[in-house]
Simulated assay, not measured.
Amino acid sequence: MAKSNDSFGKTLGVVIGLCLVCSLVVSSAAVALKPLQEKNKAQDTQKYILEAANLMDRVNGDVASVYDQYIEAKVVDLATGQFDGSIDADAYDQRKAARDTATSVVPQNDIASIKRRASLAKVYLVKNDAGELDSVILPVHGYGLWSTMYAFLALEPDMNTVKAMVYYDFSDSGETPGLGGEVQNPKWKALWVGKKLFDNQGDLKIRVAKMATDKQHDVDALSGATLTSNGVQNTLMFWLGDEGFGPFIANARQGGVL
């Protein structure tokens, strides 16, 4: 009597074969699509940089060309506050560097809860149509309520006046929509424009406060999102301090790097 074609062994073989074929198709698609995904990710980041630079009105479907025309990326040695011209700024991956013990440090006062900080950081110089410096954009990040939040802080050339505070890379964030997620609310972002980082004595005074009594330095905290607001404040205190962009800002304000 002939064996049945519906035996368990043959069924299992068909299932395994089908799984292998599907896995090969998925893997091949992932490899083939990776360059496109990386390109889209880069352009998405460029879009937020242009938003911080107040240049999105120049974009007519081509983010990359506007970015290339007005934005120059540079790498800063955070320990010295000086530019490091030996590094290709466009190719430098700061997040990857922060995960490598050879290219990062553990902050002594990690109030932003970032765990490790890359020794080198990107900054973005924004030029106007005449080629003059219009603003400087600093990438900052820190822990909010449930996750790390990333932002671009744009400063006027005086390195004291805020031009924009734009949070981005929010797709994987655990911040609650309508609460912590309000960092992306245009009304809240507008509150940052014109605020001063430092007072006349050079002390860091920018503050996210429930009672915004200092019109020069205070930004209203997010209603109902105390921990996220605290996270924004801690992010600024870290990245504008001595272990962040503090040395770079000090050099720039003295005319040493810009």
Rank of each mutant, 00 (worst) to 15 (best):
K3V: 04
D6A: 15
G9F: 15
T11Q: 12
G13K: 07
V14E: 13
I16M: 04
C22R: 06
C22E: 10
L24F: 15
S27P: 02
S28A: 15
V31M: 08
A32F: 14
A32L: 10
P35I: 02
Q37Y: 05
N40F: 07
N40S: 09
Q46G: 06
Q46P: 01
Y48E: 03
E51Q: 11
A53C: 07
N54I: 03
V59G: 09
G61M: 08
A64R: 14
V66L: 04
Y67A: 07
D68F: 00
A73P: 01
D77V: 06
Q82H: 12
D84A: 13
G85I: 11
S86W: 08
I87V: 15
D90A: 13
Y92W: 10
Q94V: 06
A98Y: 00
T103Q: 12
Q108W: 03
N109I: 09
D110E: 02
S113V: 09
R116G: 02
S119E: 13
L120I: 03
Y124W: 07
V126F: 11
N128I: 01
D129W: 03
D134T: 05
G144V: 03
G144N: 01
W146D: 11
S147R: 06
T148V: 11
Y150H: 13
P157S: 12
K163V: 06
M165G: 01
M165C: 03
D172C: 05
S173Y: 04
G174I: 05
P177N: 09
P177Y: 02
G181P: 00
E182T: 06
V183F: 03
Q184S: 10
Q184E: 15
N185L: 04
N185S: 11
P186H: 11
A190H: 11
V193K: 05
G194D: 05
F198K: 07
F198S: 03
D199P: 00
D203L: 09
R207T: 13
R207L: 09
M211A: 15
K215H: 08
L222P: 00
L222W: 10
S223Q: 11
T226P: 08
T226W: 09
T228I: 08
V232S: 04
Q233K: 13
Q233N: 14
F238L: 14
L240R: 09
E243S: 06
R253W: 03
R253A: 10
